[in-house]
């Protein structure tokens, strides 16, 4: 599968994750977002940048826990206020904010956590 961005053909997998992470650009992000029916605004792009910076530094993507602690902490001290921030993230990205942000930021697809019967 592929998408075309600014005349360049970019390989993506079935779910829209970049095959070659080097292909990433803001325009690519936008093309992937369009594909997923997301209208990218500044709030979205700010998070995409955060994901890219975080991955650059830690070699892992931020978990939801990290997001609500570090970013949610800015809007409130308490634990239930973190949850409000999480709901805001689900408003921006209704289907799994962390996976979607990884996709938009050109990061590897998150793996499932192990499962029990």
């Amino acid at each position: 599968m592929s998408i075309e961005v600014n005349g360049k053909v970019i390989e993506i997998d079935e779910e829209g994750y970049l095959v070659d992470r080097e292909d990433w650009s803001e325009d690519v992000s936008e093309a992937i977002a369009n594909r997923d029916g997301i209208d990218l605004k500044d709030e979205h792009m700010g998070l995409v940048d955060y994901f890219r910076d975080y991955y650059e530094e830690h070699q892992v993507h931020p978990t939801m826990h990290v997001l609500v602690q570090r970013l949610g902490g800015k809007i409130g001290e308490k634990f239930h206020e973190h949850k409000e921030y999480e709901k805001f993230l689900y408003m921006l990205f209704p289907t799994d904010p962390v996976s979607e942000l990884c996709k938009l930021a050109g990061l590897p697809k998150p793996l499932p956590s192990e499962h029990d019967g």
Binding site: Y90, P94, T95, D96, P112, H115
Partner: peptide, 10 residues
């Protein structure tokens, strides 16, 4: 295993 979620749920 892979990841799939319905809208609004993680």
């Amino acid at each position: 295993g892979t990841v799939l979620n319905v809208s609004g749920y993680g």
